[in-house]
């Protein structure tokens, strides 16, 4: 039962209030019809599935309902950062370095 921080509500809550939405920053092509087969399969299915520092989407389903992003180490399950949807992806290497300290 992870402890998740919602950057909209400004609170930590147990994981069961949230749903994980998979890898973050995978944008749907703006003009899907112009997307190549490869673009589309990448968008639909290909995931980095990173072992280590990973960026993923969470939604505060049983709270404010908002989507936000989290940086998590998938080996330890420790969260390194939470940020609102639309904000740029943080420097993962930097975060990893800091967490390793």
């Amino acid at each position: 039962m992870l402890l998740v921080y919602c950057p909209y509500c400004g609170v930590e809550r147990p994981e069961t209030e949230f749903s994980c939405g998979g890898q973050a920053h995978i944008a749907r092509p703006v003009d899907p019809s112009a997307a190549t087969e490869e673009d589309w399969v990448n968008f639909l299915y290909m995931r980095s599935n990173t072992k280590g520092v990973y960026v993923e989407r969470w939604r505060h389903t049983h709270g404010c309902g908002r989507f936000f992003n989290a940086v998590r180490n998938t080996v330890t399950d420790d969260f390194l950062s939470f940020y609102k949807a639309g904000e740029p992806m943080p420097d993962l290497e930097e975060l990893a370095k800091e967490a390793g300290k």
Binding site: S19, G21, A27, R28, R57, R59, T61, G65, R66, F67, A85, G86
Partner: peptide, 13 residues
């Protein structure tokens, strides 16, 4: 509902 929220919030904010 979750799918609608997903597209609305993350693709077409």
């Amino acid at each position: 509902f979750a799918t609608m929220e997903d597209y609305l919030q993350t693709e077409w904010p």
